[in-house]
Structures are given as C-alpha cells and as structure tokens.
C-alpha cells in the first residue's frame, strides 16, 4: 500500500503542461517580428507655391550637387564617390549650415540619391534641398 502511494505522488501531469507550452509557443510565434533598423533621411522639397523666385536675391552659400545616372557632380564638376565624400566632409567642416541643392536626374536610381544624402548627413550638412532635373 505504501509503495503504491509513493509512485502516485511522483507522477507529473504532462498534458496540461503541454497545453500551456503550446499556448505560449503560439503567442510568441504570432507576435514575433523581425525588427529592421530603418533610417529616415530628411529632405526639403520645392515649395508647392509656384511663384517664380526673385532672380536678384541669391543666398550667400549654395552648394550644388547634381546626380546623374552613375555620376555625381559638385558645382558642375564630376567626382568619384571617394572624392564626393572627401569634398563634402571638407565643405561640411567649413560651414555645415550652408544650403545644399541636390539636383537629381529622373533617370538616377534611388540608391544613388540615398548615398548622396547619407554622405551629406555624415558631413554634417543638414539643409538639403531636393530638386528634380527634367
């Protein structure tokens, strides 16, 4: 009699435990989402106001970048990516508050635009204006 009682006490109720474990498993599988670190690059767009800008007043510091398919120009001169990075870093050190106009060809890839924006941010330049070349 005593022996039988001991074996009964040692039994663990497996079925409800498995129930609970499955519940937890289903919950975590359903709520799992891979977190992708996403960066957001702020740009200024041309104002929807279509009045032509006054031609006489020119902002003091204007840095003009042009993105063509597979090519980047700074103030009209073509540069390699390495040189773009160095030039922007140099210009950013001089004045990081200068206005940057990024003229983008419609045939350029988004990847190139993001790369230029990224390099500008890295150089500390924050006044980025995106203009489309047609």
């Amino acid at each position: 009699m005593a022996k039988q009682r001991q074996t009964e006490v040692l039994q663990v109720p497996m079925a409800p435990m498995i129930d609970v474990v499955f519940q937890l498993l289903i919950y975590f599988v359903l709520t799992f989402r891979e977190e992708i670190p996403e960066a957001h690059l702020a740009v200024n767009l041309p104002s929807p106001d279509s009045r032509p800008p006054t031609p006489d007043v020119k902002p003091p510091q204007l840095l003009e970048l042009t993105i063509l398919p597979g090519e980047v120009q700074i103030q009209g001169r073509s540069h390699s990516w390495q040189s773009v990075q160095e030039t922007l870093a140099y210009l950013g050190k001089i004045d990081d508050q200068q206005t940057v106009i990024i003229k983008t060809s419609i045939m350029a890839r988004t990847e190139e635009v993001v790369r230029v924006l990224d390099l500008c941010k890295a150089a500390g330049l924050s006044k980025l204006n995106l203009v489309t070349l047609r």
Binding site: H40, A42, V43, I67, I106, T110, V113, V114, L117, L130
Partner: peptide
C-alpha cells in the same frame, strides 16, 4: 533602391501638391 528617381519624383510631386513638406526617405 533600384527604383528610378522618376518614380520617387512623381510621388513627391503629389506629396508637395497636398501641401505636406515633412518628407523623409527611408534607408536601412
């Protein structure tokens, strides 16, 4: 990233037309 800027420009034109100006481009 392979999209031509032309497609982005179309969307930006609509965004600008609606009067929205706080625009960001997402990247990884």
């Amino acid at each position: 990233k392979r999209a031509l800027y032309r497609e982005v420009d179309k969307v930006m034109a609509v965004v600008g037309e609606a009067g929205l100006y706080r625009v960001r481009i997402a990247a990884v």
